[in-house]
Design a binder for these strands. Structure first.
Length: 892
DNA sequence: CCAACGCATGGAT
DNA sequence: AATCCATGCGTTG
């Protein structure tokens, strides 16, 4: 470093009186520019001015604007298009391509060559960072940080969002992200070769085509985002954020261009220590007779393998590493990054099967996890793998595979001692994480017995309501974390779009999108102990889990705050506005934003100790642990003893802004499916369409309906008359055409069935109760007032008991989907009344089901409305029967 | 005979 | 229909 600073622009080299920041360099530092050059840079004319004759200029595919793609200065000015070519950032934003060019490659990519082949897998793997070619790269403005890079590069498949999910739809995030490029290129080696990124020697060709990006490469990435803020402790409520704690190794701290994996190649470790993960699929070898590229999973890990970070981990890590602070958003919306030195990356987890936990000592690894996060292995013998357990003890497992059905089955052998030392059994969960830059593989665990699945939902809810005392912590998932210093948080694959400035902390996403985004597969991660020993070996997804995750997402959103002294620019993505910050947002304690009486924007924060709510300025940023004593804005209320300003009533008004979405969701989740069915029927009513068309149109046109394959031509049952979704004219609700009548009857039947189910439940319940209480009358209908209801008439009995076997009467509701095939002529006169009845009953039913108390009164109400069809019923039945026989015949 | 190993099978997704 | 993976089971030492 010379003492006199000169302009970083090599074409200028003016001495700098005062330097201005230019582009961010690969080291993370900004290029110091003189006024003139800085102005040129800021005006976007730098390359025009200084690099006009240089190579690398390309035209925006949309507007034709010339951009110096081959230059770091213009790195953030364009995006690479999937179809080739580039688009300037302006056009890209218009077309919602917000994904940046891949993060900057490790500096080593610009070093001449790998000094020599490094057998260390990681040394191969880092080259895959060049999956999209060494240039051009687009640098997110001010996000030219390794943290971003690291996140982009992490093979955090578990956090990727299904491409059909909300986030992707909203952001097109993955289109150019390295992760996605990674996935794509992993399948197409040739692409890398073509773009010059493949720098592997022959011996670097790997076998198992791992999708992952390598550890070393990630580790090499420097953390360059200066920390402008800090928060002391991470809020435990971020429990579903996967956490990575980044740390610079001491040796590297001062040399940001140094690349451990290459500049200081490690000898081949045996066993492979830590440097897992990476399997670059730079291989073209055939494995088990099949090219690995094909074998490589294209999709994400199954949700059940997604790592779930717990409160404890977060607490632990955030407690130990207080300097977390920066979050890179938007440009890297899949990830939330908190800068620091070590990168702690949960990789995957697995519930131990009986055989895993058995004495055989073989832990079957999910194939994708193994291929993504563990070193590539070519021979079935595999590799010894050093893993650290939660106590810091190191174990060596044999990571290997068995050929299986033209595929592979990966196992860790020799796990018995480790599992025993952890006192794990079938049903417990082992987690695999990685600490970079050491690349250490860490095995944690979660005891099933102490981690009730229901806890997490509560966790989310409680945390959201800010009630620290209500937080339940799951039994400890324990990670060995002595190496974790300073945190880097990586969010799950939920796009984190910053909305930190929004006054209310509600999500900017349409709820449905959030749900879609989150519910895709995220929730499958939950394990159920009950699955053990049950027929189903795979964990089931509970609806509540969807809620939980949604809450988590919302919670996460609520934690974001804009970076200090930062002005956002607003980006519109598919109609939604998002605030974009150059500097990373920060994370803090969730608060409730509101406006006080004077119209001033404020926020309410809850003391962690006394749980009183304190009014704070809207721009106040709270650490995740906040108590009254931290209330520097209102010294009078800094002791916990001070009264709360907010009345309980006011609080109630405020809190729903937080708690409502979940409760709504819960309602939706718990909604009776029958109601849904009824609503669908109503929807069908609204969609009455094509019958007339169907009647008049030639067969070919009718074929455009969603005809059930087993129905005959001309069948007018509800299935066959349905138009393809969205097609066909809408009919008025008062319409009495044939189709409307049919649909109405269908609706009415649905209602009846629903009521019948309801009454069946009630009757059976009561009967059971009675039988329990009166075992001496096991086979008799009790002479009980309630049961008399069931025995009034055969029809009513049939209906009320809802068992077609309990009477000789044909239960018209057995196959309601058929009975709408009756000729509409039989009852068209009373149809509207019937529909009205049905609707009334439906509404009544809704009220009833909301309070399902099963008392007699309700039952009577219920039963009195059941199936008043009379003659219509008989007519229906005969037609139904005939239709049945028709279909049966077809079945043959 | 037993344990370990490696492959095959079939249920689940 | 294809794939995954838990586990069964034959083989080997």
């Amino acid at each position: 470093m010379s003492s006199t600073k000169v302009c970083f622009n090599s074409n200028c080299k003016d001495a700098l009186d005062r330097s201005r920041k230019g582009w961010r360099r690969r080291t993370g530092e900004f290029a110091d520019l003189c006024d003139r050059c800085a102005s040129a840079y800021e005006e976007g004319k730098f390359c025009e001015t200084f690099h006009l004759n240089a190579s690398g200029w390309r035209c925006c595919e949309s507007c034709g604007k010339q951009i110096h793609c081959g230059c770091i200065v213009s790195f953030h000015m364009f995006v690479l298009l999937d179809a080739g070519g580039i688009e300037c950032i302006t056009c890209a934003r218009k077309s919602f391509i917000l994904t940046p060019n891949p993060a900057w490659p490790p500096p080593s990519l610009f070093l001449p060559v790998l000094p020599e082949r490094n057998k260390d897998f990681s040394s191969k793997n880092w080259t895959q960072i060049a999956g999209s070619g060494p240039m051009p790269w687009r640098q997110a403005p001010s996000l030219f940080s390794s943290s971003s890079a690291q996140l982009e590069l992490q093979p955090r498949i578990p956090f990727e969002v299904d491409t059909r999910s909300g986030s992707d739809r909203l952001f097109s995030i993955d289109r150019l992200s390295t992760a996605s490029l990674e996935r794509k290129t992993a399948d197409k080696l040739s692409e890398r070769v073509m773009n010059g990124s493949l720098k592997l020697g022959a011996s670097d060709v790997l076998e198992n085509g791992n999708a992952g990006i390598n550890w070393a490469e990630q580790a090499n990435v420097r953390v360059n985002v200066p920390q402008k803020s800090s928060f002391s402790k991470n809020d435990t409520s971020t429990s579903h954020f996967s956490l990575a704690v980044s740390s610079l190794s001491p040796n590297d701290a001062n040399d940001q261009t140094k690349v451990p994996g290459t500049a200081a190649p490690r000898p081949t470790p045996t066993p492979v220590i830590g440097k897992i993960g990476a399997g670059l699929s730079g291989e073209t070898q055939i494995r088990n007779g099949r090219p690995r590229g094909e074998a490589r999973p294209r999709t994400q890990l199954l949700p059940r393998y997604w790592p779930r970070i717990t409160d404890q981990e977060l607490q632990k890590i955030s407690g130990e590493y207080p300097n977390v602070g920066h979050v890179s958003m938007l440009y890297y919306p899949n990830h939330m990054v908190l800068c620091s030195n070590s990168v702690f990356t949960p990789l995957f987890e697995k519930m131990l099967s009986a055989s895993d936990a058995g004495r055989i000592g073989r832990l079957v690894l999910p194939k994708k996890c193994a291929e993504t996060y563990f070193p590539p292995i070519s021979s079935p013998e595999g590799l010894p793998l050093k893993v650290q357990d939660s106590k810091g003890k190191e174990w060596i497992f044999q990571f290997r595979f068995w050929p299986n059905n033209n595929s592979r089955m990966y196992v860790l052998e020799g796990v018995t001692p480790c599992i025993q030392s952890m006192q794990l059994q079938a049903g417990d969960i082992v987690t695999f994480s990685r600490i970079d830059p050491e690349g250490k593989l860490v095995m944690g665990f979660r005891k099933a017995s102490t981690a009730p699945t229901s806890d997490q939902g509560n966790e989310a809810v409680n945390a959201r309501s800010g009630d620290a005392s209500a937080k339940k912590t799951k039994a400890g998932e324990v990670f060995s974390s002595p190496h974790l210093l300073k945190g880097r948080l990586v969010s799950p694959g939920i796009s984190q779009i910053n909305q930190a400035n929004s006054a209310d902390q509600t999500s900017p996403w349409p709820k449905d999108d959030i749900s879609r985004c989150l519910t895709k597969e995220v929730v499958g991660a939950k394990r159920k102990n009950s699955n053990l020993g049950s027929k189903s070996k795979r964990p089931r997804v509970e609806t509540e889990e969807l809620i939980e995750l949604k809450l988590t997402w919302e919670l996460a959103q609520g934690l974001f705050r804009p970076p200090p002294n930062n002005v956002s620019s607003v980006v519109v993505i598919e109609g939604f506005e998002f605030e974009e910050y150059e500097d990373a947002p920060i994370i803090g304690r969730p608060t409730i934003f509101a406006t006080d009486n004077s119209g001033e924007k404020i926020q309410w924060a809850q003391c962690e100790s006394c749980f009183k709510w304190r009014k704070l300025p809207a721009d106040a940023f709270l650490p995740s642990r906040w108590t009254c004593s931290d209330n520097s804005w209102d010294p009078e209320r800094s002791p916990c003893s001070a009264a709360q300003e907010l009345t309980a009533e006011e609080l109630v008004c405020l809190l729903p802004t937080i708690t409502q979405p979940p409760s709504k969701k819960i309602k939706a989740a718990k909604r009776d499916p029958d109601s849904d069915e009824a609503l669908q029927a109503l929807d069908a009513l609204a969609n009455l369409a094509i019958q007339e068309e169907g009647e008049n149109l030639p067969e070919s046109s009718q074929a455009t309906t969603t005809k059930h394959p087993r129905h005959r031509p001309g069948c007018t049952c509800i299935v066959c008359i349905q138009p393809p979704s969205g097609k066909g004219p809408k009919h008025e609700q008062t319409c009495t055409c044939n189709i409307c009548s049919m649909v109405k009857r269908r609706f009415q039947t649905l209602m009846s069935r629903r009521e019948k189910k309801q009454s069946e439940k009630e009757a059976e319940k009561t009967a059971l109760q009675y039988l329990e209480q009166n075992p001496e009358f096991p086979l008799m209908f009790p002479d009980d007032e309630e049961f008399q209801l069931c025995t009034v008439s055969p029809i009513e009995k049939t209906v009320n008991l809802a068992s077609p076997l309990k009477g000789n009467i044909i239960d018209l509701n057995i196959q309601p989907e058929r009975d709408d095939e009756v000729s509409s002529g039989s009852d068209s006169g009373g149809m509207m009344r019937l529909v009205q009845d049905a609707t009334e009953r439906y509404l009544r039913q809704q009220r009833l089901s909301s309070s399902r108390n099963g008392n007699l009164g309700s039952k009577q109400t219920l039963l009195s409305g059941v199936f008043p069809l009379g003659t219509n019923a008989s007519a229906s039945s005969s037609v139904t029967e005939s239709c049945k026989s028709v279909h049966k015949e077809e079945d043959r």
